[in-house]
């Protein structure tokens, strides 16, 4: 079950990165987020599954809004240079050799029984992060004009 969900998420992610149509790409990203909500559901955290879904919809909504406002439709940029692909490949190889032993040593997700979860303090912290974003956006739009140009 869990493997299936992650597999769908990987397919969605590949589609999101490679799609030429950016609307499709955004919806695919929403699909990745929805898979995450399903993963929460697998572990019977119903409230957090709903919460995750709500946040993902908000993210997709914001991105679509940006697309509509800025008339961003397609990704028609030419391919980047071969070196970028090689760097990505080298990085993947390095990460793979570093992490496969570590991943093998981790416990089976279905057997994990740690009970400690996020503390109220951290949740408050995350709410602060959202406030930061709100102030940041206002500054990005409202601080645009200088009293003098330099």
């Amino acid at each position: 079950m869990l493997e299936g969900i992650i597999f769908v998420a990987v397919i969605c992610a590949a589609a999101a990165v490679e799609a030429k149509d950016l609307k499709l790409s955004t919806y695919a990203l929403g699909g990745v987020g929805a898979c995450l909500a399903l993963a929460f559901l697998t572990f019977e955290s119903y409230f957090f599954a709903a919460f995750q879904l709500a946040v993902v919809s908000a993210i997709v909504y914001v991105l679509l809004l940006v697309q509509k406002r800025q008339k961003i439709v397609r990704d028609d940029q030419p391919r980047s240079s071969v070196w970028n692909y090689l760097a990505a490949l080298a990085f993947a190889g390095f990460a793979g050799t570093a992490f496969f032993p570590a991943l093998a040593a981790l416990p089976d997700p279905l057997q994990v029984k740690y009970t400690e979860t996020l503390r109220t303090f951290d949740v408050v912290g995350m709410l602060i992060v959202v406030c930061v974003a709100a102030v940041a956006i206002s500054s990005l739009f409202k601080a645009r004009k200088h009293k003098d140009k330099r």
């Binding site: 869990l2 930061v132 956006i137």
Partner: peptide, 25 residues
């Protein structure tokens, strides 16, 4: 989520990063 952090997650942080990124786009 897989390793046992099954409450809240970091969805709110992802949302904040999205908002700022959208503004920068």
């Amino acid at each position: 989520v897989l390793i046992g952090n099954r409450k809240w997650g970091t969805a709110l942080i992802v949302l904040s990063a999205t908002l700022i990124a959208a503004a920068i786009i």
